[in-house]
Amino acid sequence: MDAVFKALADPSRRKLLDQLYIHNGQTLGELCEHLDMTRQAVTKHLALLETAHLIAIIWQGREKLHYLNPAPIQEIYDRWLSKYERHQLDALSELKRKLEETNKEPEHG
């Protein structure tokens, strides 16, 4: 779990995960298009995310596709959130999302 928190403790890496959340299964080239980082930097960040299992690699022919792997985040969720609270938590995060939609904030801190 240390690897997951380390991987998440960087805005560029979170941005990469955001990109995959919007459009899953991207190649390195596609990921680079939306980011203000060198290809080398993106490669390095992807390697760290892969070590933490936050992304999964699927080869399709000669294309290396990057997928957001929800497993480690689900494990964090399972560890600290009681199953009885989930409906309430879903309702509250839905409420927050709806209310903030109008603010047009690009990122959640």
Binding site: N24, G25, H53, A56, I58, Q60, Y67, L68, N69, A71
Partner: peptide, 12 residues
């Protein structure tokens, strides 16, 4: 072949 849509990897 279509691109996979959802991928999940876990270690058990």
């Amino acid at each position: 072949m279509d691109k996979p849509t959802f991928v999940y990897v876990t270690y058990i």
